[in-house]
Amino acid sequence: MTEPMEVGSRQSPGGRSAPAPWRVVARSVAGSAHKKHGKPCQDAHAWSVVGGQSLLAAVADGAGSAAWGGIGAAVAAASAVRSLEAQIQNGTLPADEATWKDLLGEALQAAIEGIAERAEEEGGEPRDLATTLLICVATPAACAVLQVGDGCVVAAARGGNDLKFTLPARGGYVNETTFVTSEGALESAQLHVWSEPIEGLAMLTDGLQRLALDMAAGRPFAGFFAPLFAFAARSEDKADPGEDLERFLRSERVWSRTDDDVTLLLAALKGRYGMLPR
């Protein structure tokens, strides 16, 4: 089995002359349960900024029941972001929900194909690489998400006073969800388009769900997200924000509350988040 490809932390060449306005910090960390059983982290993420403006990001949680779930997660996240890069660099950004759906749907399709190819190379079936996948494009004017399975995306508008969010898609029980390799994944995926400027973005996999969401109310827990957005907004002043985030995800405070793999991808639009009174 070859290692999953290296993903994440890429800024497009265009970003060099005009610094990209997005500050991004992301980490996927193996949970205590996986560590205990000697399993690698089966979460993955990938992101990229194109044209200095558009943040393309994906997080994925490989199914524990699948032989190569972690590889599936890495392939899915990277394939989706690559597809978005190609689509957006060659064209303009969508202006309506239908066009967003096409754009994100094609990225999901790319992930499904990437998984199928990899499965064939490994001599397995796509379901051996089963994974959830959350794909997001955020521009200074809008934010769109396509989500298959659990996990969630939370976007902050109006200085963090207005939280837009997706909720985990569940098979009904706590230990069941849908995967990109499930039949009808594309048709059943949730699409969310928020046509207004967002300043902060958080994407997470199910390992953090119970810490980040008020399950009974079905909405994000503000006390979780506000400091994270502030952290992302200030990340360029920090020596090693990635290391800070990783230390946080491995902290006793987090580990005592979840034993699953966790992924947190945070982004803040420079000069926007925190500029308004919270």
Binding site: R210, L211, A212, L213, D214, M215, A216, F221, G223, F224, P227, L228, A230, F231, R234, K238, P241, D244, L245, R247, F248, S251, R253, R257
Partner: peptide, 17 residues
């Protein structure tokens, strides 16, 4: 090891098991 102050402020939702 020092912890980032913003991250130290993160609170957690309390959901029933």
């Amino acid at each position: 090891m020092s912890t980032d102050l913003d991250l130290e402020n993160v609170e957690f939702a309390s959901n029933p098991d």
